[in-house]
Design a protein around this nucleic acid. Sequence first.
DNA 1: TAGAGCCTGGACAACGTTGTCAACTCTGGG
DNA 2: CCCAGAGTTGACAACGTTGTCCAGGCTCTA
Lengths: 344, 344
Amino acid sequence: MVEISPQQRYGTRPTMKDVAARAGVGLKTVSRVVNGEAGVTPDTERRVRDAITALGFRRNDSARILRKGRTASIGLVLEDLADPFYAPLNRAVEEVARAHGALLINGSSAEDAERERELALAFCARRVDGLIVIPAGSDHRYLEPEMAAGIATVFVDRPAGLIDADVVLSDSFGGAREGVAHLLAHGHRRIGFLGDQPHIHTATERLRGYRAAMAEAGLPVDDAWVSLGATAPERVRWEAERMLGGPRPVTALFAGNNRVTVTVVRVLARAERPVALVGFDDFELADLLSPGVTVVAQDAARLGRTAAERLFRRLDGVPEAPRRVQLPTRLVVRGSGELPPAES
Amino acid sequence: MVEISPQQRYGTRPTMKDVAARAGVGLKTVSRVVNGEAGVTPDTERRVRDAITALGFRRNDSARILRKGRTASIGLVLEDLADPFYAPLNRAVEEVARAHGALLINGSSAEDAERERELALAFCARRVDGLIVIPAGSDHRYLEPEMAAGIATVFVDRPAGLIDADVVLSDSFGGAREGVAHLLAHGHRRIGFLGDQPHIHTATERLRGYRAAMAEAGLPVDDAWVSLGATAPERVRWEAERMLGGPRPVTALFAGNNRVTVTVVRVLARAERPVALVGFDDFELADLLSPGVTVVAQDAARLGRTAAERLFRRLDGVPEAPRRVQLPTRLVVRGSGELPPAES
DNA sequence: TAGAGCCTGGACAACGTTGTCAACTCTGGG
DNA sequence: CCCAGAGTTGACAACGTTGTCCAGGCTCTA
C-alpha cells in the first residue's frame, strides 16, 4: 500500500526534491540512485529507495528529455492502425524499438496527406529521435527542417515525395508482373486490373507491372479492364461486375491490394462462372477459401523490421547516403489463380 | 527550401530564443505567436513567423509539457498490436484521442504481466494524461501511485486485478452461454470447449458461460471436453483432434477466441464428418468460408471507443466512482453453428 | 602525524517553455 | 499639455531533471 504524503495532492507528483528531503540527502544523490550511477553508499541508497517507494515517486521523463536531448522514442505514421496489412509492420517496428529501449508513438494518416503531416510534425514536436512514415501525401518537403535538425527518418511501403530519403518497399512492379504472368500462363488473355488511387506509388507500380506482363505476352490492354482509385467496397464491386459483364468480359482479375482482393472474393463468390483471381498482399484465411486465393505476398513484418533497423542504425550515428531498399515478393499459389479461362 | 543558420548544427534545433533574436523581439512574444495568443501586432507577428520559417523552428513539446503539466497524450497497453481483434480497438481509441487533441502511445504486452507493467510505467514516466490497459497480469496494484497522482486509468476487455478501477468489457459469460445454447438448440449434446489461459478473465468467464448453458440444458460436461490454455496452434489442433476422436467424440466445438477459432476451422476443414462450430469473436471473411462460421461477435471498436470516452470524461475532471461497463455480444449465424450432430 | 588521493554528497546552472507582472507606447479627452 | 487607459511587449521565475564542479571526510602511506 502506498503512503500518500500531505503535499501529494490529486494531480501532483513527488519530485526528486521531495524524495531528497524525505531521505535526508541531496537532490543529486537521488538522481544518482534513480539512474543507477555509481558512488552512493549502500546505506544511503537504501534510504533513498525507501523514500521513493513511500512517496510513489516516478521520474518525470519530460524533464529528463528536456535535459538530455534524447527521448528514446520513435514515431510511426501509418495509414490505418486497423488495416491487417499494416498490423504486422507496426508490431515489427515496435519489437525493434523495444530492443533498442525506445517507445513507439503511432497514428493513422487515414490516407490523408494533411493528417500525415500533422502527425509527423506532432511527433517531431515531441522530439522523437526518429520517424518512420508510410506516406499518404506526395510532398514531404515539410520534413526537411526536421531531418536537418537530426530526426532520422525512414519511409516504408512507398517512397517519399520530393525529398531524398531512406525508403524500404516491396517490389510492387515485379510482384504484379509475376502475378499477371501467372494468370497468362494459365491461358488468360483478358485480365482486369483493380488498383488503388493513382497517386499512390505502389498502385501505379503495380499497374505498370500488369501492363508489362501483358505487353511481354504481346497482348493489348483494353482501357475498360483497368480500374484505378475505386477503393470503397461498393465501387470495387461495381468495377469488378462491369469488367465481368459486357461483350468481352475478362476471364481473370488482378487485385491491387488486400482490401480490394477481399471485396473481389465476395463478388466472385456470387459469379455465375469461375473467374481466376490473383491478389497483391497475402491475408489471413486466404488458404481456407474455396478456391484458395493465390496472392503475391509481401512480408509486412520484414518491411517494418528492415525500416526500423535502418532507422536505429542511423540513430547510432553512421552517416550514410539515403538508400532505397526493395524487398522481393513471393507468389503463393492456392487455386484461384490457376483456374482456366471460362468460355464466355 | 530551408535556410540553415550557423548555430543550427546537426542535432541542434533553434529555440524560441533564437527566433526572438532573429525577429528582434522578446522571447515571450515568440511564445505568444506560436500559441496564437492575442495581443501581438500583425507586423510583429509577421516578423516572428518569418523568423520561424527561416530557422525551421518547431516548439519543443517536452519543455512545454514540463511547464504546463499536461502532455495531451494517452497510453494504450494492448496485448498484441498485430492481433486483428485489437486493431479496431486500437484505431477507435486513436480516433477518440485525436478528437480530444491527444496523441496515442501504445505497445504490446505480449500477454506478459511484467511487460505490461514495464510499458504502463514507462507511459506514466512520460506523464501521459491517461492510460488504457488491456490487462495481461492479474495484479495492478503497481498502478495505484500513478492513479493517486492523477493519471486516469481505464481497463478494457478484462478487469483490473486487486484494484478498483474503471473497466469496459464484453459480456463474455452471456455471449458464451448464448453461443453454446445455440449449438444445443441444434441438437448437440456433446460439445467441446477450447479456451484461452485460465488466468485470463475472459477465458474463465466464457467457460462459465459454456458450463451454464450445458447445465441449463441438464447436460453433463465431460472433463475431456474442456481445454483451457492451449493457445498455440499446434496445441489447439491437438486438443481439437483429441475431442473429435475416441469413443465419445464431441459433435460440436465452441472456440474461446478468434485465434482459436481460426485454428479450429483449419482442423475441421480436414475432418471426416461435419462438426458444428461457434467461435467467440468475429473475424474477417468468416462469412466466406464454407460453411460460414457462426460467431459470438464483440464490437471491438465500440469497446475501445467507450473506454477512451470514459477516460477523457475523467480527464475533463468529473470525479466519479470506478464503474464496470459491460457491452453486449451478438450472435452472428452463418452456417457452421447450425450443422446438425453427425451420427458417430 | 601530515600529505596525497579516493570516495561520497551537495550546490548550482542549464535544458526550452509558459505564467506573472511590470513597463512601455499610443490615443484621445479634459 | 497632461493624464488615464488601452494595447503591446519583455524580464524573470519556475517546471523537474542531469552535468559540472567543489567540499568534506575518509584511508593509506611515508
